[in-house]
Design a binder for these strands. Structure first.
Lengths: 140, 140
DNA sequence: AAAGGACTCATACCAAAGTATGATTTTATT
DNA sequence: AATAAAATCATACTTTGGTATGAGTCCTTT
């Protein structure tokens, strides 16, 4: 929101300024119209490029990290909500005990979830689960 | 290079077109100059925004996946070549035994490497080693 | 030649991860 | 209300991972 206000102010003041210039050009009517219009066109073109350059770059940078999570695949593999939570915590490097503590359930429950997860992802180890899940865009 | 040619052609044809419009506006001299100039300004502003929007996005998108490996950090942490190999294989989800087989060394050797790696990365588990190493841009 | 770093390997022991099986309780869905 | 799926937990067991320590070999650099 705020990032729109500043360029807008620039545009408006630019328009006012150029209208004033245009008026003067009518008074000192020697210089041809085409040159003025051309100059104005180029100036605004540059302004437009300038405005969208700065902000766009950063916005896209953020979005690239957001490769969308493939919820179709999650369903397809029959991975439940709780299993997804566990998978994400595994990918953050937590131990089963730490996951159990964080989710307020027993260690055995986490072991069950991971075992089911490994079958669904067709892997044998948690590290493999993470790489496979990332390849499938199931986790970030 | 090529990506500059098309917008340039657009700009030039736009200028020509607007100059023609401007000429007609002199002939049908009823409409005030300011409105024409304003319209031209806005049109070119939009053109400028449009031009830089499309190209910039893709260029940045490509660059983000290529976050360079921070070899300074690797040195700084004193991680050796062999340790890096092990770290990469860990991040691919291999077990210690599989890594040992792949590198033609004993399981014990891999255990030694991982233990040293964990000290250098200040982590306790292989999964944590992977997330930390990725955060530090030590591995892809 | 000596010293240091990197790489190798071993033994032994403890901790965590993973497997298998069975069972109870929630929570949706029909 | 009945059924099914999801979530919970337990016990018992095996495998893998991780820690600690010591030691030998091979380079490289002083």
């Amino acid at each position: 929101m705020r990032s729109i206000i500043i360029p807008f102010a620039l545009v408006l003041s630019g328009v006012v300024l150029l209208l004033l210039i245009a008026q003067y050009s009518v008074i000192s009517a020697n210089v041809s119209q085409e040159i003025y219009i051309g100059a104005i066109s180029i100036a605004f073109l540059a302004l437009g490029i300038f405005i969208s350059r700065n902000k766009k770059a950063k916005r896209v940078l953020v979005k690239v990290d957001d490769i969308p999570i493939d919820s179709r695949k999650i369903e397809e593999l029959g991975i439940s909500k709780r299993e997804m939570e566990v998978l994400e915590l595994i990918s953050e490097g937590l131990s089963n005990q730490e996951i159990a503590d964080k989710l307020f359930v027993s260690l055995n429950t986490i072991k069950t979830h991971t075992a089911n997860l490994f079958v669904k992802l067709d892997v044998k180890r948690r590290t493999q689960a993470v790489t496979t899940a990332k390849e499938l865009n199931i986790i970030k």
